[in-house]
Amino acid sequence: MSLTDILIQQLVNGLVLGSFYALVALGYTMIFGVIKLLNFAHGDIYMVGAFVGFGALSLVSGTIGAGWMGIFVAMFVAMIAVGFLGVVIEQVAYRPMLSAPRLSILITALAVSLVLQNAALALTDGQVTAFRTDLGFGGVSLGAVFVNYTQIVLVASAIVLMIGLELFVSRTMYGKAMRAVSLDKDMCRLMGINVQRVIAVTFFAGSALAAAAGVMAGVQYGRIWYFMGFLIGLKAFTAAVIGGIGSITGAMLGGLILGLLEAFATQIPHIGGEWKDVFTFGVLILVLVFKPTGLLGKSEVERM
């Protein structure tokens, strides 16, 4: 393989990885926007999404198979179910804490993360579950680079979801209300906006996107397990920080940048491969030191 081929291959890998990061980072950043909480349980929401998707796919594969049709149905089911899970978590765990000191709600988020992880651990005995699909191994060749159709469809699905979110936030009244709530809650109340409901909708949307990413990860890597949300949660947080936490476009951009950085980092001689996580979190530290507001963030972002 020539260097160009390697770079193209990593570009493709980076796009796939980056779209997962972006989808999870979106929820991070949206939830931060409306209640100024770093929802450390968000990676585990992604994990639950993968398992719900797996369960749904097992149920429907008998009738419509485990091809794209089945996968999209499973993804849809996972998004709805996990969206509601997000709303329940918000109402049960976070809402009572909203007027408490900021640190308390952050600790609550860590607790929710542990609850979700341990529930999944108990239900699966900590075993890795094979996420089987009927997808073939077809694809297209670009010179020496082979891109399989699965990767193409996954990236396309992620893009469709992100466009959908962008339209929701910029065109619909609820989307505009979501942005307004992140700016000034009391003013929103005075305009007749039910702030609690907007927060619930935000949790629904953010959790649904994470669930979609979880199902996509199951499809792409073929294996899911209870701990899969931990690392991606931290990386999505990194992506959100790179993009500027609170900024929706920033989260998409940050996810993509991080995915590409990681993919290309594997190719750096001597420090590639195993060191990619060090690379990622090194970038997080650099961003926090030199541009804590991220690429598109506003300067009034609150420090935790």
Partner: peptide, 14 residues
């Protein structure tokens, strides 16, 4: 308390 970060039109719509 105008919503800074939203356009004038979006403020009115809200």
């Amino acid at each position: 308390h105008v919503l800074k970060g939203l356009s004038v039109k979006e403020n009115l719509e809200l």
